[in-house]
Write a protein that binds this DNA or RNA. Sequence first.
DNA 1: CGACGATTTGAAATCAGTCAAGAGCAGTGG
DNA 2: CCACTGCTCTTGACTGATTTCAAATCGTCG
Lengths: 253, 253
Amino acid sequence: MSQPLTLAPMLRKLELWTALNTADQAAVLPLPHIIRRVRAHEFIVREDDRPRHSCLLLSGFAFRHKIAGNGGRQIFSIHMRGDIVDLHNSMLRRADHNVQALTDVEAAFIPVAAIDDLVVSHPAVAKAMWYDTLVDAAIFREWTLNVGRRDARTRMAHMLCEFALRLHVAGLGERMNYTLPMTQEQLGDALALTTVHVNRMLRSLEKDGFIERTQRSVRIVDFQLLSRIGDFDARYLHLEQAERDETTIGTGS
Amino acid sequence: MSQPLTLAPMLRKLELWTALNTADQAAVLPLPHIIRRVRAHEFIVREDDRPRHSCLLLSGFAFRHKIAGNGGRQIFSIHMRGDIVDLHNSMLRRADHNVQALTDVEAAFIPVAAIDDLVVSHPAVAKAMWYDTLVDAAIFREWTLNVGRRDARTRMAHMLCEFALRLHVAGLGERMNYTLPMTQEQLGDALALTTVHVNRMLRSLEKDGFIERTQRSVRIVDFQLLSRIGDFDARYLHLEQAERDETTIGTGS
DNA sequence: CGACGATTTGAAATCAGTCAAGAGCAGTGG
DNA sequence: CCACTGCTCTTGACTGATTTCAAATCGTCG
């Protein structure tokens, strides 16, 4: 059961969305949970499971995806520290997609029943979690737009911008300079492109001076510029509150 | 403020997801609201608005969409009677996408503040609404998969299956025989295809005997078969409860 | 009847996919 | 310490599904 502050990243995430009073905070932190390490590539939830736990990421990266009948894989989202990664599946009772570890992961598994009780007794927490779901949904919409209506290069640039911002907000990644937690194949499955084409688009962005790269590490030369190239407008991430007390990420200074 | 049963379709929808006791029902029905007619093509919410009402569809169809920088439009979902069509935008406080009437629409506009109060005083209702958001998100994921990983014909067939089922559940559409509320251009924006290609795919499905069509009306010859063609598996709609007491829709009898 | 939007069809162009192969890099074991 | 293995990244040539462009037909409504 470990120290009482293990679930602090969850509180941090929820408070991005709504202010929580002391009583609410005091209800979240002592939620029962089990810490477990999950190896890269292991499944956290499988489609059709009936999950009995919700999973809070403490370190590492995970992703949601689904396999089409023709074998194609579509990745829906990438998750990082503080994300409650299968609130969707566990609240719906029956998983409609897979959640898999991208890297080695440390996670807190919270019994669904405990969350069920919590949301009844603490409406403000329920609202924060609901809000979290709403933001997830907003990101899904943006990804649909990305895949459906943007060309390959724009899509790629858009993804790089989203990563930069989300890593920054999660307190990972050093501003405009971060390491992608995924291979080009996985990037392809998120963008609905082939590995080959992902590679070409990355090189194209590099050649044109929008980014610098070595292996997985990416340096965004000018965030504003890449945003324009990637048709990226951060509003869909609903981070207004989070950004209030941050220096603007776009200035690069 | 009209009769006390105007909001019954909302109750019906929420009870697809969770049982509500008499007190909860009695809290939903008298929510303050204004009935308004909205003409086809009119906007219900615009990106960047700060909506002060949530909108329950009583009749007609509406859709959510967003315009990319290159002018392309991506439709995220189609809504029908009983759908609470901008819970997303109104709860997030700042709209990140547009909601527009597809046909002439009759809708009940409920003040956001009233819903805010309701979810604090009635946790079961809050949970049902949250669940509704979760199902919306599940549908967004499936659409991303559709657009990202299925070819044009499969995508088209998938959409026709989803419509059949959802119209049926909403108590509209006559089983395997319904009228599409949208033009081929709008279908294209939902499937991320051009009008021309939508037309070709429809004709192809028709030629091969999977559907019959006249104008907007569609008859699905064999639902099981079209499901196979469209890689359609209804589980993402999370209708288990709803289907429990329905005769199987697939048998066509 | 005329007009306008929606549907249909054909031909040409293109973006991204497929196929194939080589290069780089990390970990393993001899 | 180096060869071997396996994965990821990179590149080129070719293919093909879908788009683009253009024009004809259909339907509905004033």
